[in-house]
Structure formats: C-alpha cells, structure tokens
Amino acid sequence: MQRRPPMSNRTGYRLVKLGEMLLTLAEDALAPLGVKAKHIHVMETLLAYDGLSQQDVSRMLGIDPNVLVGLIDDLEARGFAERRRNPEDRRRHLVHVTDAGRAAVEQSRTLLGAAEDGFFAVLDEDQRDVLRDASERLLTAHRPDWAETDC
C-alpha cells in the first residue's frame, strides 16, 4: 500500500518536492552537455548582464562567494567562461561567457525547454498561466530583489 508522507497536504512541502523533481529533471537534461543547472544559471546571468564581477554574480544569485568561485572554475575548465581583469579596477575580475559557453547555453535552452514542456504537459495553458502568475506573486512578495531584476 502506497502512503503519502504526513506533510504532503502542505503547499510548501509540495512546492519543495516539485522543485526537487524539476532540479533532477534539469540535471538529467543537461547531462549531455557536461554541466549542471547551477552552471547554466550562472552563464545565463552573465549573458544577461555583461561585465559582472564574481561578487556581483554572488549577490545577484544568492550563491556563497566560495561556492561561486568553484562554479566559475568549472566553467573556465570547460572553456565556457573566462575571468578578465576589470579595466577600471585592476584588483577585480569580470567574468565573461566564451563562444563555447554561449553555444552550451543555447543547447541548454532547448534541452531544458523540452524537459519542462514534458513535465508541465499534465497542465493546460490556462493552468500553466495560473502557476506562473502565482509563483511570480510569491517571489515578488517574499524576495524584494526579484522585482528589481530580470533573473
């Protein structure tokens, strides 16, 4: 007999479980590219806001600076990103996505789009719109910086 976890009636619990499922789905979809969702998240941010420092990316994405250094090291090792000295402040580095990184991001958009389409296929377009709107309202209400950026 299959039983649901005791907290399964809580909306927050359900959202966490859906988030876990979507992260696993994303990781599986991105595996052929040799990257993880967090790598794509960093590269998408770097592409959206050209000329960011590691500190800027860390603050914007809420990633611990030490963790971000490792992510950027991974991206550099794969040839997807490079650090360049900031011409205005030689003590700082700006991080840029390379052509290979841009190609990986383009491929990831296709892979992630297909994975999400499959996951959300049980919902019709109106239901997807409601979910998008509700999640937008919650994020805007509880993360004030959400409304200030396009991430």
Score class of each variant (00 low, 15 high):
73 D>K: 13
100 A>V: 06
74 D>A: 13
71 L>N: 11
111 L>V: 05
93 H>K: 07
67 V>W: 12
108 S>Q: 06
68 L>T: 06
107 Q>Y: 00
65 P>S: 05
114 A>C: 03
106 E>V: 07
103 A>T: 11
117 D>M: 08
105 V>H: 08
68 L>R: 06
80 F>W: 07
90 R>W: 04
111 L>H: 10
117 D>T: 12
102 R>S: 14
99 D>G: 15
110 T>L: 15
72 I>F: 01
84 R>S: 00
112 L>E: 07
108 S>G: 09
66 N>I: 09
122 V>I: 15
102 R>W: 04
67 V>K: 15
98 T>L: 01
116 E>D: 07
100 A>Y: 10
74 D>S: 15
110 T>F: 06
111 L>D: 04
72 I>Y: 01
93 H>S: 06
106 E>G: 14
116 E>W: 02
113 G>V: 01
113 G>H: 05
66 N>Y: 12
91 R>K: 13
79 G>V: 09
96 H>L: 09
79 G>F: 08
112 L>R: 06
84 R>C: 00
83 R>Q: 01
113 G>P: 03
77 A>G: 14
101 G>D: 10
97 V>I: 08
117 D>L: 08
87 P>N: 03
114 A>V: 03
104 A>N: 07
106 E>W: 10
100 A>S: 15
116 E>S: 11
107 Q>H: 09
85 R>C: 04
69 V>S: 13
83 R>A: 01
111 L>M: 11
124 D>I: 02
